[in-house]
Design a protein around this nucleic acid. Structure first.
Length: 286
DNA sequence: GCGACAG
DNA sequence: ATCTTGTCGC
């Protein structure tokens, strides 16, 4: 048999995958559909979920697929599941979903069967959403399969639609001082493909306790932070619109979402529910 | 040597 | 994704 975890798939398979992405992309809903998405402090949001797949050291086939649901805004774990799985498809940039989404969708399905009352209202997914080669990353894919609003959370910037780690981009990242500060990632198409939300380790180490660095307990509200943008001078942005995930409308699930960069350590950040700190040089600051 | 092709 | 190495705090 072949080793799913490795080897590049034949061009024929990639064509099929592209066709599937195009088919499902038509069901994406990339606008707010839930009241909590636009409420000042997300009032109405009670459960936030997160999914991820972690691998066994030198193994690209065996991995742990996990789904966790937290209460909001308390952020207490109310549901958690980790399941060892055998990946069937290799990782191919632009097609991450075909490798991981089956197991993520199954995790959501099991939750629906066992504890439907704990179904999250939004799901954070490792990987990109609409910031993708064909505008349909794993977050979008899972959203369609589960009918849940999903937010893509990536650790590295996928340079598509004109997005690049230019000096301009790096400058904007450097402006992300306050925890939770963000700026929109606007592609050449004019679409906001995501929000970068980073805390520079250098800044923190050099400015602890200095003016400009908000004291603990004085941070702005999450919602307020999301709407913060670098000082005037940057090019894009007045879209006061945050960038929460969406929901589905007609047919099967749907929703899109935005990806983002994040600190290098463990997980990354998210457009909306961005909290995580972590530190260290990141793929964006670099 | 460096960058890029999510994880 | 995972591997590394170094630094700092407990």
């Amino acid at each position: 048999m072949a080793a799913p975890g490795a080897g590049a798939p034949p061009e024929e398979t990639l064509s099929l995958w592209k066709r599937e992405q195009a088919r499902l992309k038509a069901r994406v809903v990339d606008w707010d559909t839930e009241a909590w998405q636009r409420n000042p402090d997300f009032s109405g949001l009670q459960r936030v979920g997160g999914v991820d797949v972690s691998f066994v050291k030198g193994d690209s086939v065996n991995a742990c697929a996990s789904l966790v649901v937290l209460s909001y805004p308390e952020l207490k774990v109310v549901y958690e599941e980790c399941r060892m799985v055998n990946l069937k498809a290799p990782y191919v940039s632009g097609f991450l979903a075909f490798r991981e989404v089956p197991f993520l969708a199954e995790a959501v399905q099991r939750l629906q069967e066992k504890e439907p009352s704990l179904m999250p209202q939004v799901l954070l997914v490792d990987g990109n959403g609409v910031l993708h080669q064909r505008g349909f990353g794993v977050a979008c894919h899972l959203g369609i399969l589960t009918d849940l609003p999903c937010v893509g959370v990536a650790k590295k910037l996928l340079q598509v639609d004109g997005l690049e780690k230019s000096d301009q981009h790096k400058e904007k990242v450097r402006c992300l001082r306050a925890a939770g500060a963000t700026f929109p990632l606007v592609g050449d198409s004019g679409t906001i493909l995501g929000m970068a939300d980073i805390r520079s380790r250098e800044y923190i180490r050099r400015n602890q306790g200095l003016p400009g660095a908000p004291a603990l307990g004085q941070e702005r509200t999450l919602k307020a932070q999301w709407q913060e943008v670098c000082p005037p001078g940057g090019s894009a942005e007045p879209t006061d619109k945050g960038r929460p995930p969406e929901h589905l409308g007609p047919g099967p699930g749907a929703d899109p979402d935005a990806p983002t960069q994040a600190p290098r350590d463990s997980e990354a950040e998210t457009g909306p529910v961005g909290v995580g700190p972590r530190e260290g040089p990141c793929a964006i600051c670099e």
